[in-house]
Write a protein that binds this DNA or RNA. Sequence first.
DNA 1: GGCGTCCGACTTGTATGGTAGTGTATGCAT
DNA 2: ATGCATACACTACCATACAAGTCGGACGCC
Lengths: 222, 222
Amino acid sequence: MIEVTTGSAAERVEASLRRSIIALDVLPGTRLSEQEIAVRHGVSRQPVREAFIGLSRTRLVEVRPQRGTVVTKISVPRLMQARFVREAIETAVVRRACETFDPASRRRIDDVVALQAERAALGDHAGFQRADTLFHAALAEGAGCALAWESVRDVKAHLDRACQLTLADPATMLPLVEQHRAILAGLDARDPDAAAEAMRHHLWEIVRALPRAEARYPDLFE
Amino acid sequence: MIEVTTGSAAERVEASLRRSIIALDVLPGTRLSEQEIAVRHGVSRQPVREAFIGLSRTRLVEVRPQRGTVVTKISVPRLMQARFVREAIETAVVRRACETFDPASRRRIDDVVALQAERAALGDHAGFQRADTLFHAALAEGAGCALAWESVRDVKAHLDRACQLTLADPATMLPLVEQHRAILAGLDARDPDAAAEAMRHHLWEIVRALPRAEARYPDLFE
DNA sequence: GGCGTCCGACTTGTATGGTAGTGTATGCAT
DNA sequence: ATGCATACACTACCATACAAGTCGGACGCC
């Protein structure tokens, strides 16, 4: 549970909670107690409070004054908007990547994709998603859009959480790796339209998988 | 200086500081003291600290542990990235707006543009920028992208701060109003390409004006 | 039995004191 | 005069105590 050791106590608690929330270790709707989390992490309430504030900024939790803090339920409209934002930014990123792309980043991405394929074959959700984040982050960095990635990261958290419900066996993960390869193919061919279209198709995957997840776990949605 | 009266003390202080920073009432590079700001706002240090954390998330201030908190200098690369993100999101927004747009929002926007033209004619920077924010926010809301606007707001803060250096007299503001009208013209014509191109041109304005500002106020840049 | 009120056990928000680290100034030795 | 060690002022960070609000249940009353 608690393994981050760098940074301030508040940052450690926030990172720990964020991971737990995205991994659905704590389910949407769960009430979070400053007091309880404080003792579990061996810190006082103050750092926990600051962690809550940070998480509430990305709407992963909702702090209701004097009433309590709860993990936000999965909101379909929010997911649609998150996908919209990601499509807008990341298609623009790959288009720029087709113009100029850092060769060193290009080589690293191959390793990331290989790693992700391996994790997918093993059915390792967490490792798969870490690799997915690395892929998209490296893409942005290689294109010289490292700062733009910051805007993506926040909205991606919500999508990642929902993906926990849709990723089951390797059969559901491997197609996503193929989509990554398709994006890279467009990039290598310096074909902006192809790369952007591959990215768009990739980001629409969640929309296709979402209805089944919502039907199966209605309690996690609002 | 202190006029916000809603929300917690931390939120009030953060909003107050954010406005002061964007308006360049406190210049980039200024050291901020928890103690001093606390007494100026009549609160304790804790809410001020939380305000600092919030501002540091959008990189308006930089908190250096045990060393102090300073207002970040204006970073040209960050501005370029902010423009990139805004172009990606907001061109996507106006394209969607060309498909469906809430009529009530459309009427409101006319009022906003009129208000902005009035502020521009009076040379009222603050009012002009408030109206500018209203314009872009209403555009997103009318297109059903209210949540996407949240992603824009953070990066827009940096651009707004830089604009304080470029907006001088009505002659520099009125063209921006015309650009807003051009965007609306594309929207009304249901012409996505025209609307997106108008938006792109509008967002490039800062790039054209930036070199003069940097040459004139080098101390404010990093 | 049903309803209204009050009290108490929670919650988050705020204030304050103490701690550890950093930068700077000062005084001393060279 | 210069280089270095030490003391001090200042910072952010954290822990603790207190305040203010909310929710639920027990109790008395109708």
